[in-house]
Design a protein around this nucleic acid. Sequence first.
DNA 1: TTGTATGCGTTATCAG
DNA 2: CTGATAACGCATACAA
Lengths: 345, 345
Amino acid sequence: MDSITIKDVARICGVGVSTVSRAINNHPDINPETKNRILQVIRENDYIPNNSARNLKRTVSRSIVVLIKGIDNPFFSSMIRIIEAETQKARYSFILHRVDLMEDEMDVAMEVIKEKKPKGIIFLGGYFSHSYEKLKKLDVPFVLVTIAIADPKEREQYSSVSVDDFQESYKMVSYLCSQGHTRIGILAADEGDESIGKLRFEGYLKALRDHGIRPDPRLFFHSAPDAECYTMGNGYRLMNQVLASGEDMTALFAVSDSIAIGACKAVFDAGKSVPEDYSIAGFDGLDMAQYYNPSITTIRQPVEDMALAAIRLLFDVIHDSANNRQQVFKGQLIEGNSIRRIENG
Amino acid sequence: MDSITIKDVARICGVGVSTVSRAINNHPDINPETKNRILQVIRENDYIPNNSARNLKRTVSRSIVVLIKGIDNPFFSSMIRIIEAETQKARYSFILHRVDLMEDEMDVAMEVIKEKKPKGIIFLGGYFSHSYEKLKKLDVPFVLVTIAIADPKEREQYSSVSVDDFQESYKMVSYLCSQGHTRIGILAADEGDESIGKLRFEGYLKALRDHGIRPDPRLFFHSAPDAECYTMGNGYRLMNQVLASGEDMTALFAVSDSIAIGACKAVFDAGKSVPEDYSIAGFDGLDMAQYYNPSITTIRQPVEDMALAAIRLLFDVIHDSANNRQQVFKGQLIEGNSIRRIENG
DNA sequence: TTGTATGCGTTATCAG
DNA sequence: CTGATAACGCATACAA
């Protein structure tokens, strides 16, 4: 670990450390010749600046941190790519930091801020039930993506990018109704959910009611509280419960595409078919949904646009902190082949 | 950013900074009472140690870094989970660091080492064509996962965990032959590939030859050099080329499950079916492969075992650096419904 | 068991 | 344009 430091570089070049520092950090007030000479020496000796020392000394670090909860959520994959690209385009460095499902993203944020001194933070996924106070402590500009904050009172306090999960669910379930379905089950998050799972559930309820259908609790299939909800495995389990229940229904609204896919598989394994025996709708618009067989009818969240909006919004807030705003995107209903039309609705 | 430091804590408690440091780091030589008092104050004031300062000061940091190339590869998702769990079980902290597809993982490793001073590194994904020299510079124990190092001469230099991509491909293609297929195409990586894509391709060639089938270049469908190879989109494109080629074949070996799934979709969109018109085999054993319809016949890499082996091997090497070894796992052929048997082989 | 002092590698401030 | 030098926040050797 006896690696070369800025001092060594300075000594080799016969200059002071501050000059080397200037060379590294592209400071304007340095003789181009000396700069090149230093850069040359740096390359020849594989000098790598110590990031810890830099972060320790610096007050801010021209970097953007993305805090992601649920790193295996394919929904985020393309977002990351876009955010990184945009970040680098702005000549900021991009730091991805994963937060465990059990961790409080706010606590993690505080730590990362201390360590990295980023210019801004993007929160991908997770919940934000009662973090108002913590939110305020965060003195770094940030944008919430995909995150439901219940209370709209605190509008000024934060920026966010999302779809209206309630409305979009409503749209999907209304569509099911319009296709003649009347007995529509739901494969939902766990009952205690206070996040998007809840919003999507409520959109479902509202849509049914507005279509003159009385929601039937026997058609609610909630995830186990301890299960990882938005997974194919969970969808598979839930659908098997549906099959075992013997309840009569023609359609199911799965609150995510992965759940929908798992559900389809359960139907197939039971020797039945989608959409003939069960119509199944998803939510999110994952690539997987359109590659599946049958392709899943779903609500597509405009991930690319959302990612772009998130990073741009963040830069806006960085440049003018008064600029906080909530940006809500429209989802798009994509018709696949997982839903059939019932003639005698 | 005027946050509280160790000095403040010391002042508040009326003790010296070193005592606070001892409390934080669980040093043995400290009065339990003072320790508790300090910890109490720390909690009350939300003191968060500055990681940069710690890393700067420390020579090693009781942490494991996982460097992952291709973070959206679902193949790695479960691995990460396992590695993290095991890492924490050993009371090490877990640092996940993503490396861009364009970056040299070795350079990134050097940087991260300087910054974090980890006890060990796990490389997930990526290539390692000619990095021997760089490898040696890495004076931190490390394990390569899923990475093909061509040259076996350097055995002593590194540890690795993988499957034998050549053998496993051979297995898969032999299976296709055994099912009576004789005209077997391949959906492969790009022609210049020097990594697992190449090994899998060669396994395919060997299997054909050993079964008395002469490989026919017209049945080789390589990815475009600039395409992201292991994706559904790429599989879709490749399969459309197959369909457009008019070449006669009954089966295709896709070098990954995602490619296989994309290929299936292309077949469906062409109004044909799997496995009736085309038998399609995959590789990897993603969850997705079994949830797909039809489920994909594939080679399952024992991800859980491999992840566990990787982290344990790493700890072994950390404790005894002479312990370098290469661990090769057997893949398991999982029969799905994507391959049909041809009677008159 | 505890406190003091030093330095980790940088950047920033200031004087040249 | 350049070079000393003082922090940054913490861990540790050493003294008490």
